[in-house]
């Protein structure tokens, strides 16, 4: 029933997902497949439920209904195995928090440290197994932040903060990367660097899933696009999904949604055709 099916494996498969904030439905009847080893962009207007989808995938929000599988098994199993890396939006982090860049990136290793023997876990991270230090170093080199390792995170520029968050996700060495707007508000050099890092990750066989508003970037780099606005509004190649007409439809859908608001069209009619 699950992993040994012959057609392309789904890294993440979402089925019949409903999610709500307070009592307001944000995601309705979501059926989605994120292909393994591919780079997917999630596109949609503000308030479309993209971040909510990530909250459900990372487990910080409970779905009202529906299931989420990773590689054919409940996603929670992969979370516990440290296989789901998550890069939050910059606003979600308390930058005044008294930690250094190094400590922050080491946070990405905390999941794997549960596998270490007990006495090691009681020591400071630096005296831990060398594989953790190596992973952190490698991640910091990848985002070009090793020289800033000892700085407090509050002292970084906007682009550097994003790169630190990316490094934390990389240090986890997970098979699935979830990135919430990795390119929002970064300077051009950082943007170039982040895109190059993500491309390398995809080439290394990782599944990269990112929320983005950057259409030119998405057109150039990603393999697969998901349009979302409360419902799934389309899935397919960047050429098909990011065409002017498709994006215009998506924009209209958000206006419609605000006017019709709660009396929505039957959910079933929107479920996308999945191959």
């Amino acid at each position: 029933m699950n992993t040994d099916m012959s057609h392309p494996v789904a890294a993440i498969e979402v089925q019949g997902l409903y999610a709500a904030y307070q009592r307001q439905i944000v995601l309705e009847n979501i059926h989605l497949t994120f292909p393994a080893g591919k780079w997917t962009a999630i596109v949609g207007p503000n308030g479309a439920g993209k971040s909510t989808l990530f909250h459900v995938l990372t487990g910080s929000m409970k779905a009202l209904q529906g299931s989420v599988n990773a590689f054919g098994e409940p996603i929670v199993k992969h979370r516990r195995a440290g296989q789901i890396a998550y890069m939050a939006q910059r606003e979600a982090i308390e930058w005044d928090f008294p930690v250094s860049v190094w400590d922050t990136v080491m946070g990405g290793r905390y999941g794997h440290m549960r596998d270490d023997v007990l006495w090691r876990r009681l020591l400071p991270a630096r005296w831990h197994h060398a594989r953790h230090t190596e992973a952190v170093e490698k991640a910091l080199i990848a985002v070009d932040m090793l020289v800033h390792a000892e700085r407090p995170i509050g002292a970084l520029s906007g682009g550097q903060k994003k790169r630190v968050l990316l490094a934390r996700a990389l240090a986890q060495q997970a098979s699935i990367l979830l990135l919430d707007e990795p390119l929002a508000g970064v300077d051009p050099p950082s943007e170039k660097l982040i895109l190059a890092v993500l491309r390398r990750e995809r080439e290394a066989g990782k599944t990269v899933i990112m929320v983005t508003h950057d259409m030119p970037g998405a057109r150039r780099y990603v393999d697969h696009v998901v349009l979302i606005n409360r419902f799934v509004r389309g899935t397919g190649t960047p050429e098909d999904m990011l065409s002017e007409t498709k994006l215009a439809e998506l924009a209209v859908s958000s206006i419609e949604q605000t006017t019709t608001d709660r009396q929505t069209v039957p959910a079933a009619s929107f479920s996308p055709e999945q191959g």
Binding site: S60, R79, G107
Partner: peptide, 10 residues
């Protein structure tokens, strides 16, 4: 520091 990250790490 980051409860959502803690969640994502299981």
């Amino acid at each position: 520091f980051d409860p959502q990250q803690a969640q994502a790490l299981g």
